[in-house]
Structure formats: C-alpha cells, structure tokens
Write a protein that binds this DNA or RNA. Structure first.
Length: 175
DNA sequence: CGGGTGATCCACT
DNA sequence: GTGGATCACCCGA
C-alpha cells in the first residue's frame, strides 16, 4: 500500500555503516523480518530483499486493514483507513515489535505474505522517502495513488504517475 | 511547529 | 562505564 526501499549503497539504510546487534537482521536472506524501535516508542516493520550478507529492506509504511478486532470492527471507514497509516501506527495496530526481528516471513512467525491477483490494475505514485536527512533525494517511496490509508501523499501527486496503470502483483500481509 | 520517548552507538574516560 | 547525539514517528496546537 505504501513502501520505501533501502539498499546497501544507500546512506539512509540502517546497515550502511556496519552490522550491529540492533540491525543484524537487515543483513539476512530475502524475506527476513527486520523490526527496529524508533524514537523510543514506535516500531517499524521491514522485509529484507537482497541476498544474505547484503543489507537491504523494504519499509512497510502503510496498510489497509482488512480485519479489525471485533470491538472496533464497525468504526467509520475514514478512521479505519488511518489505523495503519504510517510505519509506527502500523506496528502499533498489528502489535509488531522486536520479538519478530530476524524471523522469516512465514506462518510459523505469525506474519507472512499471501499473493493475490497478479493483474490488479493499480496506479502507483513514486516519490521521495519521508523523514530522512541522508539520501533524502532518492525517490524510493511508492504508494497506491489516492488511497485513504497513505500516510502522507506527496504534494501534487495527481500530476505524478511514474508507474503507469497496469498489472501489478499485490500481496496481503497476514499478521 | 515542538515535545515525548528510549535503545543504540561512539568517543571519551 | 558514561554522556551526548542520533533516530526511516506521532500527536496536538
């Protein structure tokens, strides 16, 4: 729904300097979960992409929640769309924390991906990442254009459609 | 805008 | 071992 990419030669990547106890998971094999604590109170969920030993990840910044706990399942759509609109809120809603760090994406970890239709017609916006000092100019944030759960749409994103309508593989995150 | 929050890392003892 | 800077955020004004 909304993601950012970080790679080994990218100064904003957590593994850019060196491997440590905190960021070790980001050097794992593709599909490894990397969760870190930010600003003392929030967690952020990443999925490792590049091969074992190379640091790289996709930060999951926002999701639409298909299912909610029964107590709040009937909240208005507007409110529902904002429950995982941002990497910290997303982890708070899904109760994701460092316990998942280093685990593989599969049902045994209680978090995994399910492929959906492979011809989902989506229009994506590609723009710059959020909240960075280093590598702030790299346009590696993508989101579903016009979706109400996007954390913060780029200014004037109605003009920008770097990724045209077409066939995209859409995944469902199950947690 | 600014405050809250705390793990982590580094440059020093 | 310790002090201070850093940090990919959220909220309320």
């Amino acid at each position: 729904m909304e993601t950012e990419a970080y790679t080994a030669d990218d100064p904003a990547c957590h593994g850019y300097q060196r491997k440590t106890a905190r960021n070790g998971a980001i050097f794992g094999p593709p599909g490894t979960i990397y969760v870190y604590l930010i600003y003392g109170i929030y967690h952020c969920l990443n999925v490792v992409t590049d091969r074992d030993g190379v640091c790289s990840a996709v930060l999951i910044r926002a999701l639409w929640l298909d299912q909610l706990p029964p107590a709040i399942a009937s909240c208005p759509p507007r409110q529902r769309a904002r429950m995982a609109a941002g990497p910290g809120k997303l982890c708070r809603s899904l109760e994701i924390d460092r316990r998942l760090d280093g685990m593989p994406l599969n049902p045994d970890s209680q978090i995994w991906l399910e492929g959906r239709s492979s011809d989902f017609a989506a229009e994506l916006v590609q723009t710059t990442r959020i909240g960075l000092t280093k590598g702030a100019d790299i346009p590696w944030r993508w989101y579903l254009k016009g979706h109400p759960a996007v954390s913060r749409p780029a200014n004037g994103d109605h003009h920008c459609s770097a990724v045209p309508k077409g066939r995209h593989r859409i995944f469902r995150l199950v947690a």
